[in-house]
Each structure stands twice: as C-alpha cells, then as structure tokens.
Computed example of a mutant assay.
Amino acid sequence: MTTLRHRMIETMQLRGLSANTQRAYLQAIQCLAEYYHRPPDQLSDNDIRHYFLYLHTERRVARSTSTIALCALKFLVEYVLHRSWPTLDLVRAPKAHTLPTVLSRDEVQTLLALVRLPHHRACLTTIYACGLRCMEGISLRVTQIDAARMVLHVQAGKGTKDRLVPLPAPLLTLLRTHWQTHRHAIWLFPARHRGHAPTTAHQPLASESLRAVWRATVRQSGIQKHVTIHTLRHSWATHLLEAGVNLRVIQAWLGHQSPQTTALYTHLSPRTLTDAAKICDDLCRGLP
C-alpha cells in the first residue's frame, strides 16, 4: 500500500466516512492514477481538467460515476494533499432526468419465487418487504427485529442514520423460520461458505454474491426491464403510494432527508397518473 493511499484511508476513517464511500473514493482515485500512470499527488490542475474532459466527452460516464470521481478528488485535495485545484470548482456532473425501473407486484412475486436458495430468497424478500437498501438488508442483526412493536430498526443506514420501518407479520414469520436454519447469535443472514456452518460465520452475506444471484434470477425470469436489487426498494415505495400511503410517511420509512426525493415516486405510479387524468377529465366536463 502506498503512503498516499494509507493517508487517504486514515483520513476517511477520521472523517467518519462509511465503508462503501471509502471503497468508492479509493476506486475513483485509483482510476485517475491508472489513467496517468502517476500518483495523484504528482498531477497538476491541468491534468485534472483533461481527466474530467476525458470522462465526459470520451467515456461519457454516468452522472453517478462523475459525481463520485469529483467528490473523491475534492476529498483528496482538501483533507489529504491540502492543495488547491481550481478545476474542481468548475466541474459539474451532467444533469440526469431518468426515472428508475419499477416492478409490478406480480413481477416481484415471480422473481422472488425463482430464487433457488432459501437464504437468498429470505434476504431479498426482506429487502422488498421493508424497502431496504442492499447493504441494509444483508447486514441485518437479530437485535434489529422488534417483534413486540412490529418494527425493524434500520441502523447506520445511508448517511449513518437510523430509522424505523414496519415489520409485516408474514415477514416476521419468514424470518423466524429462516433463523431456525442457522441460529446465528448476531446475523440474520450470515455468510455461507462450503464446508463451514453458518452458525460460526464472522460476517453477513456478501453483497457481490447476492447481486449475482439476483442478476441470474432476472435473466431466468425473462423480464426485459433493467432490474437491480435496488429496484425492489423503488417498487416497494411505489406500491405503497399506489395503496394510498401518505408520501411523508413513505419518506420517513425510506430515510429520505428531502421530500423532493420521495416525490419521484409520484411519477412512477400508474395509479397516480390515472387518477390525475380522471381529475383532468372532470375539470373539462361542461366546458363549451
């Protein structure tokens, strides 16, 4: 490990960045170093300018990739190198106005039924039934299940924030049955390695393996939509909205800071669009 990388890791830890953010920042810095075949502390402001032009005009990276690269470099410059690269103040991630994919309730049931192994199916079902992010689902601990209040306590979610989400009774039954298969003292979904009992696992399921299972399931289903595990969270929120749950309640359950973020689901709900169209029809009745 280079001295610069070590300093970057230590500084991110001191600043309290999540493990996922640390991995993303390190990967972004590594891509920059590999592009120039030089460590970042040997680059100039002009080098950074050309690099972002390369990302935007040649590679045409997604907005999220550009944003991560920008945030990683700003962190490196401000907290590690203590330098000034004016170009970073000019760079803006390309604007995006895309809507996420949403599955119907039938499509969700079809996909979950196709998941072959019970522990993968239980984890993916939990992610959908509680509107969780992937890492929130696989890292669930037994102590986060509050059966008395019928809530699931999501701890250290995105932004290191806690929240409570409803725990459906059928899901509680599923989780109890699933836990009986391994009886791990900590994890609801412990890692499973060939030749090792899940009871003794030192970590939860790996996100990479769960994502691979999900990709294979989507291919097997024949569904042509671009579906990821995060699609289950989008679908859950949209289904709640279609069922009449207040948008502010959904915002709290999702852990969104801004109501504008949650308002996205009003554009994804066919029922919302249909109801709005009916209102427009009523407004026009009787007009000359």
Rank of each mutant, 00 (worst) to 15 (best):
F52M: 08
N246M: 03
V213Q: 02
Q260R: 10
L164F: 07
R105G: 10
A147T: 12
M150K: 09
Q109M: 08
R63K: 13
A156K: 10
Q251A: 00
T181R: 09
R49L: 07
V151T: 13
A96P: 00
I127F: 02
H6M: 11
N20R: 14
Q13H: 14
Q260F: 05
Q144E: 15
P40V: 14
T217C: 12
Q30H: 13
T98Y: 05
P190H: 00
A129I: 03
T217V: 15
W85L: 15
S18T: 14
P166L: 07
A212T: 11
L17M: 09
T238Y: 04
T262P: 11
P100A: 03
R285Y: 05
R121N: 01
R183F: 05
Q251L: 04
H202P: 08
P204I: 05
H153T: 00
S209L: 12
T126Y: 01
I138G: 06
T160L: 14
Y35D: 11
H120L: 02
W236N: 00
T177Q: 14
L111D: 06
Y36K: 14
L43S: 07
Q13T: 13
S209W: 10
T125M: 08
P118I: 05
L26N: 11
K74D: 05
W214Y: 04
K225Q: 09
V115W: 05
T173M: 13
P118V: 02
V142T: 11
K158N: 06
Y25S: 08
R194A: 10
R149D: 12
L55I: 10
V218T: 07
I186H: 12
P259N: 02
A148I: 12
L14P: 03
L273K: 15
I279P: 00
R7F: 07
Q22M: 14
R105I: 13
T110F: 01
L247H: 08
V77Q: 08
K74H: 07
G137Q: 02
H193N: 09
G255V: 01
C134S: 13
Q27H: 12
A197D: 15
Q257K: 14
L114W: 04
E58P: 04
